[in-house]
Nucleic acid binder design. Sequence first.
DNA 1: TTATTTGGTTTATATTATAAACTAGTCTAT
DNA 2: ATAGACTAGTTTATAATATAAACCAAATAA
Lengths: 96, 96
Amino acid sequence: MFKDLDPLLHSQLRLAVMSLLIGVKEADFVFLKEKTGATAGNLSVQIDKLNEAGYISVEKTFAGKMPRTLCRITPQGITAFDAYVKALKSYLNIKK
Amino acid sequence: MFKDLDPLLHSQLRLAVMSLLIGVKEADFVFLKEKTGATAGNLSVQIDKLNEAGYISVEKTFAGKMPRTLCRITPQGITAFDAYVKALKSYLNIKK
DNA sequence: TTATTTGGTTTATATTATAAACTAGTCTAT
DNA sequence: ATAGACTAGTTTATAATATAAACCAAATAA
């Protein structure tokens, strides 16, 4: 009847991050912060969780002298996102 | 960019309850418990929250001698559910 | 009578989300 | 050069949440 919703994705901020990353090759911390409107602390924590789950990969680089945290969605993350969307539909009865 | 997700609806069980109620005139506790697979305790708590939010109405009756808790979605609940679905789409880029 | 089942509610716990506080380093102005 | 503000985050504390376990009262079965 109702499919389980992956708790890692069933979170406003993490879902927003995944949603952004799915449409783009990579995105840095600042970009994600601006687009989501999250606080830095919250974003940092949620990025960690997605990373630990293997849904995204995180690369710490420098842009000139300033630190830059680059995030990319992984194939596993894409699969999980797709499954989440599919599961959600069982709750929303979204037509096709 | 991303619309806020009503935290009252962004909960697996409460969303399932609303999803069930939106398609039906009324449903009782036992029905909701069976369809959602939730424990009675969890369901009881979540029904309370939806009720307190005005998203559903709860009527305690008797079926013969046995208690029966009837739930119905309210117009406010329907509005909230629709808004939630709309907001979600901003995260899922569901076509049409 | 004594279980057992039904239909719940209350309470305790573990997890989560979130912001506040903090760190490390850079840039700017004096 | 040094004080102050800013950038790009991380760590920690707190409040809210979800959830199951424990409980309760009444009905039914043995």
